[in-house]
Design a protein around this nucleic acid. Structure first.
Lengths: 332, 332
DNA sequence: ATTAGCAGTCGATAGCGGTGAGTGCTAACA
DNA sequence: TGTTAGCACTCACCGCTATCGACTGCTAAT
């Protein structure tokens, strides 16, 4: 009896579907009325009992209707993913022209859009970008023995930062340093740069190089996180329970946790559901996010387990698509 | 009878003090025991009745102890501010010796420290900096008809940003533009620059200037906000009520609201308490925050009305001090 | 395999009385 | 006039009970 018959599947979908919109346990009678008028409630009940035994459904108490378990959502999402044509989203990545711009503003906007459209709390997790290629390093004197370092990569401009220079530098010191640095870094990935010591010998620039490499390391470690629409969570009745809100806030304030949750290895869409997957009473849906064809992180949505997966997945893939298309906009 | 006698003041302070630590209504008997052993509970009761009538105290219900009203906290804070010696703060100072760095990282660190030390949710609101003086503008070619704009001010480096150039620019275009821009902007405040049109005539650079001015405008509008320790709020029993959490989250996700709450005009410490001051069931304490001697925004703490004002005010002033000292470090 | 019917379970809600922490009031006192 | 003791009163809180009703599980008939 532990086989998912066709009818069981339909039933399961009905329960999830209903629960997603109503947040209330659903009874056999309600299922009959709304989804399967041609079988009796008794039949439905016995089927439901089967699904319950298999772990897909849960009863809050014995005389209540059924509620989907995490496993049920998992099933729901998995079958959803099959039917969605993910190759709507052409991967074409294309080298083409690189639009160089502060990633930050694009990202912020995207997060906001996602949150507004889905009505869930949304987030963007920028990942350590250690395979980004350094194109050029610029050093700009700021006086006071300090200089601004700007690292231009094929993914945009890295966070600029100010570094200290040795005292009493010669005229032309910065230029010399820059050209030396460019010679040894340009065209290489951040990973390979931070990996070993590339430059040796030139004692005069040692301190400078160290600072720059430290900068890069910090950048690789990265893990910037943007969250938007935190208070949207209160639209959903499950968050009338403070415990849940607490769990929610705890998750979104742990950057590394978010990173872990959204990190689908090369997968287009990642869905984490429930305690076994690290989010008790919650679900996190995330998608790869690309700028100029380069993956820079993941964009996602966090909310109750009974999330509107259909809508969310659709929105996230759309956003993914958009981010690639921006490239084209530029010509207009 | 609507005069605050000396004893009433002491009484009021006792109530607030007690409530700050216990979060429970306090009874006349408890006050007697812990604060004024030499008067009877009856006396205390009649005094309390007076304070209640004057609006300083509130009874949750008729047979319960007293709880301070917003007005009481206001009184408490006001008298606190008179007595606090703002310069007995050293414990933290050693923590903050940092090299010169982008404002962002200093700020993030500061917020984190405040949150950790106070155990409240803390925030940093960077303000529109329209009175910052532009020192120098740099234009750096990035190929692809784009250039990076860097604006150096006496407060540090403004957010760099990429702009588009006209097609087919001449050799030397950027240099010419830069010197023209510097000629008209250097030494001026952002406000005066964005105010009217400074440069006119030179059609060739018009588009470029417009972009830079737009950049500056955005920057002035500014209003970056950092929040840290959101989940600390759950340490406090008042946030077992979801309604309060809701209010809390709603406030900290409205940037303009936070800006308004922390904006004390030239005042060192600003305290907003309760609904009348825009934060129902909450309090916000904030202090001016300076980097290298320039005020760049406000650092603050948000929590329940029965906030530990003493501690919070102390921490915030300390942080403020630290940030000023950085300037000195620089010479060393 | 499906269905109708019925007994059984249990959460939710309301009502009730007892308890106790605190108050307000009054009358006596310094 | 300010302070105090004493007492009656109020009301949140707790536990208990009863009722209601929304479901289910089970069984026996189709």
């Amino acid at each position: 009896m532990d086989k998912l018959t066709d009818r069981k599947k339909r039933l399961l979908e009905a329960v999830v579907d209903s629960y997603i919109t109503s947040a209330e346990p659903i009874s056999s009678a309600a299922i009959q009325q709304e989804y399967m008028p041609d079988v009796s409630t008794a039949t439905i009940r016995s089927e439901l009992a089967g699904l319950e035994e298999m772990g897909y459904l849960v009863k809050p108490h014995i005389s209540a209707g059924r509620v989907p378990s995490s496993k049920a959502y998992r099933f729901y999402v998995d079958s959803l993913m099959q039917s969605v044509t993910l190759d709507d989203v052409d991967e074409l990545a294309s080298e083409g022209r690189k639009r160089i711009e502060g990633v930050e503003s694009i990202v912020k906007e995207a997060v906001k859009v996602v949150s507004d459209v889905t009505n869930y709390t949304s987030l963007m997790v920028l990942e350590g970008k250690d395979d980004i290629i350094v194109r050029q390093v610029k050093l700009i004197s700021m006086g006071d023995n300090t200089a601004l370092v700007i690292i231009i990569t094929d993914g945009g401009v890295l966070r600029d930062s100010v570094i200290n220079l040795p005292e009493n530098t010669q005229e032309g010191y910065l230029e010399a340093a820059a050209s030396l640095i460019n010679g040894s870094m340009a065209g290489k990935s951040i990973r390979s740069i931070t990996g070993g010591e590339i430059i040796s010998g030139v004692e005069e620039f040692k301190a400078l190089f160290d600072q720059i490499i430290t900068m890069l390391r910090q950048y690789v470690r990265g893990g910037e996180v943007y969250v938007e629409g935190t208070d949207k969570i209160f639209s959903y009745p499950e968050y009338r329970d403070v415990e849940n809100v607490k769990g929610f806030l705890s998750v979104i304030s742990q950057k590394d946790k978010l990173q872990e949750l959204t990190a689908g290895d090369g997968v287009e869409i990642t869905v984490k559901i429930g305690a076994e997957e690290g989010v008790k009473n919650m679900a996190v849906v995330s998608a790869r996010y690309l700028v100029s064809g380069k993956q820079i992180g993941h964009v996602g949505v966090i909310g109750p387990e009974r999330m509107d997966y259909k809508k969310v997945i659709k929105v996230l893939t759309t956003i993914g698509k958009m981010s690639e298309e921006k490239k084209e906009d530029k010509n207009g």
